[in-house]
Design a protein around this nucleic acid. Structure first.
Length: 467
DNA sequence: CTAGCCTTGAGC
DNA sequence: GCTCAAGGCTAG
């Protein structure tokens, strides 16, 4: 009976979402899994192809080209946080260009020599991105069909907290994490900032010089207009190795969805929440280049140690994780319970107040912003903290995640029946490592080696205070 | 200045 | 020869 109820609810939820999507597109019958990838990440207009690093519309392509080619400087009449959508994109070119850079458009894809035609170094990257998108769609579509035909193995032990209940609520709307950005998120932005991750294995050679700056936009000055010149800017390949197209040699698209695989809806939802690959790459690239630029502008005495640089990257990673958590349906559901309990509210307020008490810092503003927007993000900071009274919900959440993982490993890796238990066996190890890293970070912090404005430290602080 | 359409040409 | 992401052109 529970399975039937679950399926009925999920089916209704999907119909609801399909209907909304269909209405948004003027009645055309798009399946819900093909959405979000055909809208320009800058203004939400129709995408016309890959332009300067990612899928954008024709007008933003032209705008970006004009701006870079003519080295235009704009100013914002407001507070540099104007909303950019199809109807308002002409209003503030400053914010429009900022947004172009923020979503990952590449200055170096604009040709300094204005040569027409041909292909540039981004070709393989576009190809790979297309392949990943196809793969994602295939996975979703394949299991969507399975869902219609055969019930999944997943059970829902606690109907009140079931995944289907969570799914039937509208998807969370994410706000851009930028400080001072009060832009109301629109539908096309829903998945843009869902999550991102930074690989800690990316090398940052301190001696590598940065390409020429783009003076008008210092926060993203790492990209060089002339970067297409191979002799001058081969160095950029080093510090952005993880994001360059060459970093995945010989990549070819293989549909890894085994035939007949039933992907649990929860796994599907996580796949859907994954951020666009190209945007993650662009963010990594931009962040590392920015770090590099800051590092180069410091005197030898002020220069950050390797550990300091690692802290910055970890900081960014943590921020991304919190952003991802905000997009997770479970955390969204948790918001209700956090808000309805005084004890829980106190727990939520503690890191908030802690952040408030410190001197103004970027990290503080960011932390506040996250917590104000969605207190449920707190759980991601306090996984072991017993400040949530709604234990049944949390337990149900863990159970559902585990059930989905079990089901997925059984279906996807039938030749390794103990894969699930093997994965679980790694958890204590990971937790031990995590505790060690936390202690080490605290030690480093106490000896003054962690850079200021570090979100990671503030959150660790908050966590220990809560305990 | 904008944005839709056109031309070009390296890589497949 | 085809593709498609560059740059170019131009009416509005």
């Amino acid at each position: 009976a529970l399975v039937i109820k679950f399926l009925a609810q999920r089916s209704a939820a999907l119909k609801h979402r399909r209907g909304a999507e269909s209405a948004r597109r003027g009645g055309m019958d798009y399946s819900y899994d093909t959405d979000l990838e055909e809208l320009c990440p800058v203004c939400g207009d129709k995408v016309s192809g890959y332009h300067y690093g990612l899928l954008t519309c024709e007008s933003c392509k032209g705008f970006f080209k004009r701006t870079v080619q003519n080295n235009k400087r704009y100013t914002c009449a407001e507070s540099q946080d104007c909303n950019i959508d199809k109807t308002q994109r002409k209003r503030c070119p400053f914010c429009r260009f900022q947004k172009c850079l923020n979503v990952g458009m590449r200055l170096e894809a604009v040709r300094a020599d204005r040569m027409r035609g041909g292909r540039n170094k981004f070709g393989p990257m576009y190809k790979r991105d297309r392949a990943l998108k196809q793969q994602k769609k295939a996975l979703i579509r394949a299991s969507g069909l399975k869902m219609e035909a055969t019930p999944p193995l997943m059970s829902s032990p606690q109907p009140d907290y079931s995944f289907s209940t969570a799914l039937s609520t509208p998807a969370p709307k994410n706000t851009h994490p930028n400080i001072g950005t009060s832009v109301a998120p629109t539908d096309y932005e829903r998945n843009l900032y869902a999550s991102s991750s930074l690989s800690l294995s990316i090398p940052i050679p301190a001696h590598t010089p940065l390409p020429a700056q783009y003076p008008a936009y210092p926060t993203l000055a790492s990209h060089a207009i002339k970067s297409e010149y191979p002799d001058h800017y081969t160095s950029s390949e080093h510090y952005t190795c993880a994001s360059s197209p060459e970093s995945v040699p010989g990549y070819t698209y293989v549909d890894q969805t085994p035939p007949g695989l039933t992907v649990p809806p929860l796994v599907l939802e996580f796949v859907r929440c994954e951020q666009d690959e190209l945007q993650v790459q662009s963010k990594i690239s931009a962040h590392l280049a920015h770090l590099q630029q800051e590092q180069n502008s410091r005197s030898a005495a002020e220069r950050l140690s390797t550990f300091g640089l690692m802290c910055h990257i970890a900081d960014q990673t943590l921020f991304s994780i919190v952003e991802w958590a905000r997009s997770c349906i479970f955390f969204k559901e948790l918001k209700v319970s956090v808000n309805t309990s005084k004890t829980e509210l106190k727990g939520y307020q503690t890191p908030y107040l802690l952040a408030d008490a410190q001197t103004p810092s970027i990290a503080r503003l960011r932390l506040k912003r996250i917590l104000v927007n969605n207190p449920a993000a707190l759980l991601s900071l306090t996984a072991d903290v017993k400040l949530l009274e709604n234990q049944p919900y949390v337990e149900s959440m863990y159970e559902q995640v585990n059930a989905a993982l079990l089901e997925y490993t059984l279906c996807a890796y039938p030749q390794f029946p103990d894969r699930f238990s093997q994965i679980l066996l790694r958890f204590p190890e990971l937790r031990a490592l995590s505790t060690q890293a936390e202690d080490y970070l605290c030690y480093k912090h106490l000896s003054g080696e962690v850079p200021c404005n570090n979100l990671l430290i503030e959150m660790l602080h908050a966590k220990r205070t809560c305990i």
